[in-house]
Nucleic acid binder design. Structure first.
Lengths: 133, 133
DNA sequence: CGTTGTCAACGATGACCTTCGTAGCGATCG
DNA sequence: CGATCGCTACGAAGGTCATCGTTGACAACG
């Protein structure tokens, strides 16, 4: 009857936590009020504050004083969080097949030619990187 | 002080739930004992049963009798769950950029030439699908 | 027929998530 | 100066998650 241990660091974000991290990644940093505004203002001020304090306890963000308020700064990088999340999905849902993942992604949404071209370039770069070593 | 409502259907899976759904997707179906074995046997029988009952309550699986036991069958398809999870990630972490997502994916792991070729084919198909309509 | 083993149902437990109410503190306004 | 405002700190409330103990059925073994 243990429940899960508090994630002292490293794993994943819950929905609300991800909402908040998303704002910080996009803006670079944010005070409580700024984050709350970016979320549309439909959550209470103290709720956002509490989430930020919990995220700090998990070492996902830190803060520095700015006037009377705190400015919160992400410590975890979005690319790292994204890599973890993608690994989880490709393993648990697509049985390790990146091809199936990509197929699901492109079928899910209509991408422009430019987007598809850029994705192709990503694959080209990956291949070139492979070849030259 | 509300907490989140129990997800009566549709959204996402928690870690353990995903472990279990992953087994059912891979095997097609499973009894409690089969799922438990597939997970490595390091969780209690009643834990697995309970999770399956919760998943059934969420309408992610159903069951039919098989001898004295129940056989659980996934109702949610992996591709749908994958699509939802990918949308969440691309929006919240990669700010809507599928290119960034793909770049993170291919940098995270070393793919073989065959895998990269297959991913390229996925993009080709997507483009062809776009052109012919 | 009693013991043993497999199985589903139920309830409890402990940790966490998300939401706020309330309080305290300093600055600003009137 | 007193009221108010913006801010952080504290803690509680109600819900989920993940785990399992216990119970009761039922069948198979000896």
């Amino acid at each position: 009857m243990t429940g899960k241990p508090r994630d002292g660091g490293r794993k994943g974000f819950t929905d609300r936590e991800l909402d908040i991290m998303s704002v910080l990644w996009r803006e670079g940093s944010g005070t409580v009020a700024e984050v709350r505004d970016a979320l549309g203002g439909d959550v209470g001020y103290t709720t956002v504050l509490k989430m930020l304090q919990i995220l700090e306890e998990k070492e996902a963000v830190s803060h520095e004083r700015e006037g009377r308020a705190y400015r919160y700064i992400p410590l975890v990088e979005s690319v790292n969080a994204g890599g973890r999340a993608l690994r989880r999905i490709v393993n648990k849902i697509f049985h390790g097949s990146a091809e199936m993942l990509l197929a699901t992604l492109v079928e899910d949404r209509d991408f422009s030619d430019e987007e598809i071209q850029r994705m192709r370039s990503v694959l080209d770069r990956a291949e070139r990187r492979r070849d030259e070593e």
